[in-house]
Write a protein that binds this DNA or RNA. Structure first.
Lengths: 342, 342
DNA sequence: TTTAATGAATGAAACGTTAAAATCGGTTCT
DNA sequence: AGAACCGATTTTAACGTTTCATTCATTAAA
């Protein structure tokens, strides 16, 4: 902020009061047509741009929202934020972005910083905030929407994917191919998504009458690295799994590499599935069978929900859907095949 | 923005004037220790958070910067923004993020919107702004740093990668392996990076005494799709290239897939190189030889440069490096080998 | 002619903050 | 006794807006 021309400067130039300028610029009918035109022309000539900081103070809204993500360089997060930004932009909201790096403490710091900036609303992707922070969040009185929140809880609005359903679809696909020894590689970082996906995995096994084998459950870190390490353990088993359900595509990416390193390949030796359908999934060798998450759409929905929350402001009884569930779509590619198909 | 407790409310509660509160909160020595303590306690109890919008107005700085990117879901962009945000955060700046979608008009719209928000500085990644907008940018008087700007020009500060150098390193690697028919798949979207990489390609050929073969130059869109289409053309050639220099890793990703579709593989039939060293490069089959761009570091540098610009504010003659060049690092993996090595 | 109503513009207050200037009772110096 | 200074605080103004209340001509109605 430096030298910007203000409404008062314009007023002086046009020889009217600053309130007349204010009205003229917003096309108020309370100002004479000619005067209005003159002022508008002057404003253009001098490159006047209204200051949102001045405006915010009196209007009591900043037309700004804050968006907290774990890590913007995560290929899952990018598209979500893009969806958020798209809607925000359509409605003339500006978006503050901050990374929490998966640290709940940092996450709250960011939220506090957004609060100081007086954002109109806050969006949190993959929130780690546990019960600890809920009281503080509540007293903030800022509309809050969680995207794929990692702790279930009814204290806020949320948009998330139907993990149990998608998980079951994936398992049914594997089971119908004839797999009986199916492993699960989860995300150590935990969170709700892992819990739900694993629950779906276990439920599907149960329904198929297959006893749960503890040895077939490994944990990674939702990054390729973790996938490598996890599948390495699985390959050491005397009775190897014939299929591996990976927590997400990144885990699967690591699994792919490790599989090759062991001289094996998918789906011939082992079927592999991912979750997310990140951009690279169709280009892998073999193209990855996975569950498509409508990431962009999730971002859009979350922002739309937030806007609705903003609109119904004090009116309270708007009756908005508190927990929007979106469904994932099973995308069958070439990384899954009947067992022993080599 | 709704019901927030203000400095005046606190003043009333503590029975002092609002300016005393203001001072107390900033630990000014001009206020009595006990009073100060009392006020701080009260502030905490009531969850007081200073308003940056009020503060900005009088301080004439918002401690906010705007960051324009082409597309936040691009895996190259994420890490850059992450670097930006990391530094911003360390210094207590908040970051506005917006996507330009590669549209120069939209890019200027975003810049204007940032200007209305009175950001202290602006960062633009992969800027498309041509000569058309320079005058407007200049009169904005907001410090501006470009990251990998697509049009050369001296009107602003910039941080970018040493494309010619990296390009040459890559070519020398290929040449030293014995390749003589090397193709180039560029980025149709053009821009400076493509120009520089291609120039490096041509120069290396020239230095090696290899005549340029027009047929070996194809263009994609910097996405996997484009890589597919481009390499398809190359594979149709009666005399195929023995190596392909792809504009970036995404292009190489597409090339990989198409190569396999044709029943060929790298590096046996054709060596493939990428550029960027995106997260998936080491996990591909074969692991991709590429040039590592220090994306995170570029983001950090750009933000640091912007902060320096902000610090020297009016003082003018600070003599800062206007165009920071960072060098890429050749990362040799398994996608390159001597020709005919199959 | 006085009173009302209308159109167009101005003045003032408010939003939350900082900071310069002013106040004020109490020393201390000269 | 008066000036000068002290620490602690208050008053006031400013930042860029919006908006409510006011003013001031004109014109229309009584």
């Amino acid at each position: 902020m430096g030298k910007h021309i203000s409404i008062k400067d314009l007023a002086q130039i046009a020889n009217v009061s600053h309130s007349t300028v204010s009205r003229a610029l917003r096309n108020s009918p309370l100002v004479n047509a000619e005067t209005s035109e003159l002022i508008q022309r002057l404003a253009n000539e001098h490159g006047y741009r209204p200051s949102w900081v001045g405006r915010s103070l009196v209007m009591r809204e900043t037309r700004t929202i804050g968006c907290v993500v774990t890590n913007i360089s995560d290929p899952f997060v990018g598209p979500v934020v893009r969806g958020v930004e798209a809607v925000a932009n359509e409605r003339n909201y500006a978006v503050f972005l901050a990374n929490s790096n998966g640290d709940p403490y940092r996450e709250m710091e960011v939220v506090r910083s957004f609060h100081e900036r007086r954002v109109d609303g806050i969006l949190v992707a993959a929130s780690r905030v546990g019960g600890l922070y809920i009281p503080e969040l509540a007293e903030l009185e800022v509309p809050l929407v969680l995207i794929n929140n990692q702790h279930s809880g009814e204290y806020a609005y949320s948009v998330s994917i139907d993990n149990p359903g998608a998980s079951r679809d994936l398992m049914n696909h594997l089971l119908s191919l004839g797999h009986r020894r199916i492993a699960y590689i989860g995300d150590r970082g935990g969170g709700q998504s892992d819990g739900e996906r694993r629950a779906g995995y276990e439920l599907a096994l149960k329904e198929a009458g297959i006893p749960l084998d503890r040895q077939l459950i490994e944990y990674g870190d939702s990054q390729p690295e973790g996938g490598c390490a996890a599948i390495r353990n699985l390959l050491r088993l005397r009775r190897r799994p014939t299929a591996v359900f990976c927590y997400n595509d990144l885990t699967a990416l690591g699994a792919y590499a490790e599989l090759r390193a062991a001289g094996l390949s998918a789906p011939g030796d082992i079927s592999i599935t991912g979750f997310d359908d990140l951009f690279f999934a169709p280009y892998l060798q073999p193209p990855l069978t996975t569950v498509r998450q409508p990431m962009h759409e999730m971002g859009r929905s979350a922002m739309t929900l937030l806007l609705e929350l903003l609109a119904q402001n004090g009116d309270g009884a708007g009756e908005l859907e508190r927990n929007v569930k979106m469904s994932g779509e099973l995308v069958v590619r070439k990384s899954t095949a009947p067992p022993g198909g080599n």
